[in-house]
Amino acid sequence: MNQPEVILVTEFDEAIGTMEKMEAHRRGLLHRAFSVFILNEAGDILLQQRAMGKYHSPGLWTNACCSHQFPGETTADAAHRRLMEEMGFDCPLEEIFAFTYRTAFDNGLVEHEFDHVLIGTYNGAIHPDSTEVNDYRYMSASQILELMEQEPDRFTSWFHLALPRVLKHLNMSVTSAGM
């Protein structure tokens, strides 16, 4: 079975080629990705606990969904596709920033991503795919930050980096939210 390809990029997010997803992760090459943050009308943030069968970060809590754009697919189209595939719903999304990070995992894989962060609001039913999502819940920013301070290893590496910037975008101070 052919594995999906990711888009290899420069540090300026300029596409320079494609590579099979697992090979890019084995080699730690910079590639394009995205992370979706969802809030409800109360301002709580939707978290998902990654399924235990994920190839890295199984069982860790993170943002509503994240993945990689397919070659030729826009970030917005990819984000809508994966939100539906992972969480079973879709909603309007807006890209709010992008950042680069690199995390090496115990299994030898490396996430080295140019991560586009999108945000949306949703209040309806959630129907997660159990092969992608172990659990989910909405929590306030202050509850999340408190839990991250008490148990940082329960969250993905990119969530630690993206959440403070999302809160800043939302004009929620990290200090006033509990840290």
Rank of each mutant, 00 (worst) to 15 (best):
Q3M: 12
P4R: 13
E5N: 11
E5W: 05
L8D: 02
V9K: 06
E11A: 07
E14P: 12
A15K: 14
M19E: 07
E20F: 01
M22R: 10
A24W: 09
H25I: 04
L29A: 03
L29C: 04
L29W: 05
I38F: 12
L39I: 06
L39M: 07
I45C: 02
L47K: 07
Q49A: 11
R50D: 07
A51P: 09
M52A: 14
Y55P: 10
S57V: 07
L60T: 08
T62Q: 14
N63T: 09
C66Y: 13
S67M: 08
S67E: 07
S67D: 14
H68N: 10
H68L: 03
Q69L: 08
E73H: 03
E73C: 03
T74G: 02
T75G: 02
D77F: 02
A78N: 01
R82L: 15
L83A: 04
M84C: 08
G88W: 06
P92M: 04
L93W: 01
E94K: 06
F97D: 04
A98Y: 04
A98N: 03
A98P: 07
T100Y: 13
R102L: 02
N107A: 06
L109K: 11
E111L: 08
H112C: 14
F114D: 11
L118F: 03
T121A: 10
S130Y: 08
T131M: 10
V133A: 08
M139K: 04
M139L: 15
A141F: 00
S142P: 05
Q143V: 13
L147M: 14
M148N: 01
E149Q: 12
P152R: 08
F155Q: 09
F155W: 11
T156Y: 05
A162S: 12
A162T: 06
V166S: 09
L170F: 10
V174I: 15
G178I: 05
M179S: 10
